[in-house]
């Protein structure tokens, strides 16, 4: 009985599972973002997205890793992600953000392939510095390019 209750309690967080990825480009420059994630068939950073182009002042949102199976920029090499097992099994790991020249930021969560949460790059958008930040709030991942 007790085991059952514990199992039930453990399963509760999954019901309102929140693990979306929200990306914001608040700079005045276009950026290209590559997203890294994992699921039951792919180890940490084993899922690599195609190139997501974000114009100045654009944002993007992805509900879960499987969203990228059917939504641009998709996963590279025909990779397919699954949400099987819940957020204990799958998750967003990090991102590579570049503008093709000065800006070259690899950031992400602790324990990922890019375990650095914040990077500032001087003169990355004209003479403006660009800060790239990865943070997790309420189970959701936020990638802010400021």
């Amino acid at each position: 009985m007790r085991t059952f209750l514990i199992a039930l309690l453990l399963s509760l967080p999954a019901i309102g599972a929140k693990a979306a990825l929200f990306i914001t480009n608040n700079t005045n420059c276009s950026v290209t973002v590559t997203i890294y994630a994992h699921d039951q068939n792919h180890s940490v950073c084993g899922l690599e997205s195609g190139s997501l182009q974000l114009a100045a002042g654009e944002s993007a949102a992805f509900n879960n890793v499987a969203t990228l199976n059917t939504t641009l920029p998709g996963w590279q090499n025909g990779q397919m992600a699954t949400t099987a097992g819940g957020t204990a099994v799958w998750g967003w790991d990090g991102a590579f953000v570049t503008n093709g020249s000065t800006l070259w930021a690899q950031i992400g969560r602790t324990g990922s392939c890019f375990p650095i949460p914040v990077l500032a790059t001087p003169n990355a958008c004209g003479t403006s510095s660009v800060t790239t930040a990865w943070h997790v709030v309420g189970g959701n991942a936020f990638l802010d390019i400021i």
Binding site: N26, A61, A133
Partner: peptide
Amino acid sequence: FTAALLFLLAPAARAALFINNTS
């Protein structure tokens, strides 16, 4: 340091709005 940096960024921020339907 990271926390401080994020905090410093906040006041000048222009917020995005995200809507997520997991229902």
